[in-house]
Structures are given as C-alpha cells and as structure tokens.
Design a protein around this nucleic acid. Sequence first.
RNA 1: GGGCGAGUAGCUCAGCUGGUUAGAGCGCCUGCCUUACACGCAGGAUGUCGGGGGUUCGAAUCCCUCCUCGCCCACCA
Length: 918
Amino acid sequence: MTTPPTAEIPTQYDPAATEREWYSRWLAADAFKADPTRSRRAGGDRDPFTIVMPPPNVTAVLHVGHGLNNTVQDVIIRWRRMRGDETLWLPGTDHAGIATQNIVEKMLAREGKTRFDLGREQFVARTVEYVADTGGAILQQLRSIGASCDWTRTAYTLSPELSVGVREAFVQLYERGLIYRGHRVIHWCPRCLTSLSDEEAEHNDEMGALYHVRYAVLGEDNKWLTVATTRPETMLGDVALAVNPTDERYASLVGKRAILPIANIEIPIVADEYADPEFGTGVVKITPAHDANDYEVGLRHALPMPVIMNAEGKLENLSDAGERVPPELRGVDRFKAREIIVGILKESGALVRTEPHQHAVRHCYRCGTVVEPRLSDQWFVRMNELAAPALEGVRSGRIRVLPERWEAVYVNWLEGIRDWNISRQLWWGHRIPVWYCETNGCVTVSRDDVTQCATCGGPVRQDEDVLDTWFSSWLWPFSTLGWPDRSDVDLQAFYPTDDLITAPEILFFWVARMVMAGYAFMGDAPFHTIYLHGTVRDTNHVKMSKSLGNGIDPLDVVRLYGADALRYTVIAGMGMGADLVLDPHDLDRSFAPGRNFATKLWNIGRFLLTKVGDQPVAPVASITDSSLARSDRWIIARLNVAIAECDIAFGPARPSSGAWAPTQVHAGMRLNEYAESARRFVWNELADWYLESVKSRIAAGGEDGDVARAVLVHAFDGALRLLHPVIPFITEALWQRLPAREARDSELLCTAAWPQLTPQHGDADEFERVRECVDSLRAMRAEHAVPPGRMVHAVIVSTRTPELYTTEAALIGQLARATLTVGGRVDGPAMHALLPDGSDLVLSLGGLVDIEKERKKLEVELEQLEKQLGALRARLANESFTARAPAHIVDAERTKETDWAARVDGLHKKIHSLGAGH
RNA sequence: GGGCGAGUAGCUCAGCUGGUUAGAGCGCCUGCCUUACACGCAGGAUGUCGGGGGUUCGAAUCCCUCCUCGCCCACCA
C-alpha cells in the first residue's frame, strides 16, 4: 500500500469518507474472514478465537443497545485479531417468531385483515416476503459502526441449514425422553393467541382488588364460607373450595358442599395444604383450568377441570363446563365479565367487601397483554437433566460469568428450573416435527417430513404448532458452524467458542439455555466466558427504547461525529456491568468524550506526521541507548506502561487450562480501563509532553533529529495499535500514513500485531524532573499572573542533579516560556515577586529552603511508617495471630513487612542524601 | 416474600484483594485563537467517599445497622 504524502492530510477529519474507504478496504482484503484451516483444532498454527453475535431480530433496526453490544464484541475480536488469533465473529439474525408475526399481523390489520383471512400458507409466504425485503437491515447498519464480522458466514435461525439443526435437536431430545407432550395450565396470551414459556410471561406489580365473596354451605342454614379472590371472572370454573387441613375454623366443614354463586352448582369443600390460613379468609376457591396452583389441587383431589374461557379471553362453556356460564356472560371479554360478575354478586349480597390489593400480574413480553393461565396441551422439554451440566460448568470454572454477581443469578435459576414449554400456536417459526396418524392416532417424531404413517401407512397430519424462537437460538453457537454435521470443518475449528457478550435480560432466555444445549448436543460448554454488559439509559435512568421515544439512533451519532466517536464514548463510559447514561436530547454533550478524542487524535496525527515527514525512520531497537534523549527514554517507557495497562485491562483471553484458575476467573474485560490507558498515553503523554519536547530537535535535524523522528513514529505506531480495537477507522487512516519502516508486519492495521514491550536500559524517570520543573514554573507564572506573551527568568538551584537542568535548560525554557540560569544562589524564600521595575520576573526552583521543608516532611513520614512497622512486627510475632489467621493472610503480612522495611530504608537514605547536600 | 446492586466533585461514573496528597470525562472559574487541535492549550476551584456504630497502627475499601433508590426472581388466591 502506498504512503500518501503527509502534506495531503486534511485539516478536518472526515469520518464519513474515512469510514467508507477503510471498511471497504478491510472487506476487499478479507480481513474479517476466518480460515478454519489455520485454527489449531484443525491442524493450523493459530489459536482460534470465536464470538457468535447475539442474533438481533431479523426485523430489527439498529438502536443504541445493539450499538453498545456490538461495539464491545468488536473491540474484543479486533484485539484478538491483532494478538494473532484466528478470529471468527459470526453474525446473523433471529427469525423472532412471535415478534415478527406480530409485525406482519399489524400490517395486515391496516389492510383490514387478519392472518386467518389469508390462511397459514399465504401468511407465511407474506412474512417470508417481508423478511426478504426489509429483514437483516440491521446487519448492514452494523457495518457502519465498524463491526468486523465474517459476513460470509452470516446465519439465520430459520434458514434451511439451521432448520436441520432444530429438527435434529428436537428428535434427539425426544429420543432421549426429554421432550414430552403435557396437559397442564400454561401461560396464554389472548392477543397473540399462543402459549408462552414462564420466562415470556413477565411479572409486574399492579394495584388490583381482593373481592370477598361468600358461598353458601349446603345443608347448613345461614352458614357461609367467604373466599377472597382477585379474579372473580374465573369463579364460574370453580370446582371446590379449599381450606388448610390444620385450620380449625373450618375443620367441621371439610367434606361438606357449597353452592357456587351465579352458576348455582354444588362444589365440595376440601382440605389442602395449598390454602394459607394467613391469607384473606383462609378459604380459597379452586379453578383448575384457569390457575396453575388450582390445577395441582385439582389433580390431588381428582376434581373436574371445566374450561370456561376461550382462547381470546372471552367466557364460554368449553370442555366439561356444562352450562356454568349463563347466556348473558357468554362471549364477554374477561375484564368486562369481571365487572358484570362483581355487579351480580353485589346485587345478590354475595359480595361481602372489596379491598385494594397489590399483586404481581403476568404480561406477555411481546405485546404487554395480561397473560391468562389456561389448561392446554403443549410440548415440554424436561430441564432438570439438561441443567445439571450447565450448573457444573460454572461451578467447576469451565465457564465464568462476568460481572461475578450474575453467577449467583444464573445458578439460582438453574437450580429451580422448570420444564420449558416449547410449542407456540403461531405460524411463523419451525413447525414441530411431529406427525399424527389420522387412522390410529400414533405419533411419529422425525428428522424428515413424514407423508404416511409408519405403522399403518395411513394418512398423517403434522402438528400445527411451531417451536419457541429460543428453541432455535439455543443451538446458535454450533448450529451456525454446521451442526449437526460433526465433520464440518468450521465446527471443528471454532467450537467451543470463546466469549458470549450480551445484556443480562436474556441470561435465562438464551445464555443459560445455550450452555445446556452445548453440553446436551456437543458434549461441551459453548463458551468459557459470559460477559454481561450494562443497559443504555436516558438521564432519568429509564432504559432507552424506540417505543418510549427516548432512544438514540446510533446512525445519527455516526453521521454527526463518526463511528469512532460513538464507539469510544460507549466503551470508555461504561464500567464492567454498569449501565451507561446518555442524554438523547443532547448528543453533543453525550458524545463529547468520543468526538473530542477523535478530533484530538486526528490532529496529533496530522501534526506528528507533518513533522516526521516521508523519509523512512530507523527501528527504535537499532538506536543505541546513549543516543536517546531523556524524553525519548521516557516516552518509550510510558508506551510500555500503557501496553502493560491495556493488557491487564483486557486480561486473559481464555483459561490457560480446561478451567479458569481462581486468580484469573474474574480478571480482565475492563474495557473502560483499556480505553483510558490508551487515551492517557497518546493525549497526556505523547501529545502534551513528548510532541512538545521534540519540536526543536526535529527542526534542527541531523542525527538527533532522526532519533526523535524514529521515537516519535515508534510511540505513535504503538498508540495507534493500542487504540485500534476501540477506534478502528481513524487509527487505520493515520497508521497508513506513517513513514515506511522496516519490518512493517501488515498491510493493514486491523491485521497488524498488538504492540510489544520495548526493552529499556537507561533511567526513564529523569524526564519526570523536567516535567515537574515545567509544572512548577507554569504554576508560578499563573500565581503571579504573568501575561502569556511575557518571558520570565528562572533560577534553578539544584544540589542533586545540576547537570540534568543544564542540559535540559533549553527545553524547560521553551515549555515554560522562560530563560534559565542553573546554579547560583537565591536568598530567602524560593518564590520572588515581580522585580520593582516590572521589567522581569525571577522565579527560582529547588532552593535550599525547600530542602529543609522536605526533610521535615520525610521525617514525619518515616516516624509514622516506623510506628506502623513496629505494630505489624508485633502482630507477626504474636503466636495466636499466626496460628489463627489463614496462611495466605500471614504470608501477605510478611510480604508487607518486607515492603515497609524497604521503604523505611529508602526514607533513611533520602533524608541522609538531603542532609549531605546541605 | 426471597436475592442482588447502587448511593464518591454540579452531572455521569472509575477507584481490583484496606496503605503516601481519593481520580477521569463533561460542566464551572481565570487567562490564551502560542502557524496540529477553541471538539484546543495553560492554570484553578469543588468531595465530613448516604447516616451511625465497629475491627485495625491505618477504612471510600472489611464487619454490623439504618436510610434512599434501582434491578432480578417468586404458585399466597
């Protein structure tokens, strides 16, 4: 790749042009394309590193939550790419059964139609068409924030390839006895007309009412049992009243019968543990078909289970209901029916009283409709057996959960796991691979389509239902790599994957289930790290969402400030697992950190590259230590520190053995710390100090000028490499303009190597004295309100390193706008006021007066430290302490003792040397 | 009802296993358009680290307790 003349660097950074150019060059170079043959697991020479993208809904458009999630993934994947791994970031979309179906249904509603008007086949065709037209737009949008996915492997949960996996998984589980047909009360959404899993029915606390209704006891004049209920609309489905067996108040009534109001039928009074004597009146009505608990009671007492409400939530006499629902209530919606029933009860005197009552109500997670418990037939996955290895995986350290606190949530959920209802009465999704024989009713579960009954050859009919969307996404880490074809080279090269990066909201829906599926179908965990990042919120801490209108469109941010500004802002602004607060009404302010930094970096590059010029520079390693200036050694050391800090912030990419060591399990993934370390280096060290300090050397040219150019390029090259994962576009654009050096390791920064530490010999800290000196002089100037244009004269009195100040006098003078005299004496206090004639100002630094002061300070410090050391030694000498305390504590205290003793020693020496200079 | 998290500068937050003077960004004040950058430069102010107790030579950091927010889970009708 050619290096354009630096003179052509535009003064203004143009994000749009830069991003367009470099993204297409990366793609043209296949920089993001994973090569399975290079993975060690497939005989290659590189460690594989894989992230599967949490697939957004196929109909989704990019919002800031996606922006955050995918930026985090991209930072990690770019980091590993630079570290030399064979990286695969696998993108894709989820068909999102219920969500997508809702969207198409809404479109139809605008045409005045329902899905039933179209019929199943046409409706699905219509949805396919819609998805083909507009679906997957989000994947295009991800390119504009710089996502370095392997787009050649883009997957889709409803694609033919992945659908093979879905059937395989269903059949395998069925054959292992882990899938069964169950008749029980499930969560039902009367609007979506489908069942939901427990996770899909969300709790919300709501104010409702507790209605106290009395039921006459049969054969006992004027005896009543009062029941407290929140859902009187279901009472027509009552089949019993229950009291606690230990409840003496009602002991005599157990076995008798009561009259169900309105329906006027007799129901038994039973004793069951489920009734809580403390709650309400201690009497509970039992409605088995419309309450999960009541269903259990119904089973225990062999009660009938009349269904009095239809799929749409309207009262109706269905199975076993007889004539329970009177004509005037038939076809009435459940909430309207509640009003009417309460009215009737009030009129008849059966309603004793009504009290306000707060309780949790479940809602459909897709449309918000209040969920109705409903007795029906569904397919379930038996979860206990699947959960065991998923628990063990985390407990053994095979998988880590970050931040740590989510591990307990994960464990808690798996320990109390319940069977998973996987059938949905929808049309959009994977049809359940079960066929029923029309003749003998026998059931065939098959990987391939079945056209006739295997036993009698009669006609068959496929189950009408589709599978829960999550039944396909839980297979994602391996279905996207070719499973069930176990010989697929991608599967061998990249499974198990490495990090799973997502928001905590889908920990149960998706993450935990993927772990279970990984063990169940692949025999191993699907990843070793679960990283759960925070949520983007507005200034009121409300989660950003399109529907609430408080969202931020990442593409707006890209348009205004560039993708790098967006990326840097979200990465630098978010501690591990912490939420990110942004103001949707003030993008300028919200994204100032990224925008400012991007501009600054561009200007640093522009200036630096102009100064350095086009001529090749020598590698820093080839420069002898004696040729390096103090500032050279310092900036090289600072780069080393920055590299080390970034490495620590990222932490280990994978466990060194099969499981995470206790010392590493919670290390790393501090992306904000990584970003801050890199920013500090390039801005506060390279730009603020080093760049300023080499101006004159480069202007002077010669051998020293070349050394400065070489170090400048070295330091900037290191900075660009460090920053590339978080701000890929600017860094790539600038890196390409660095003057040619030997051993450039890559045509593109995105595939170049992560920086290595530079070996150092000389004292890198001497330049700190220069900085301190300049800082002091600047502070003095400000204190004395010296006009900026005015030179001052400074006298530096140094008893320790006069040579340092002599050789650096010109530099210090330049940085602090001062002329310097090194040596000589200044009497009295160190700081002088303006000279009487106002013509000049003399500032002095490091005078003898300060030495006295410093000495006193050190002596105080020494005294304190010696006292502390004494206390520590006393503790260590105390036998009961060493016996009682755990070994590692004692060891830590011993280490501390050594450290402190060394510090005491150092202080003694320092004080001594001050005295010597006196 | 159970569990978890947060409360540190005006705002948003870092501060890892207790150890010199508690940090950053944004905002604010003063002065500068110093031929890379005003999306900048130089200097500066601001914190009884939620309250109270305790452990320790030493606590923002560990323990107890209280207060205020937030989140997750949950079959008390």
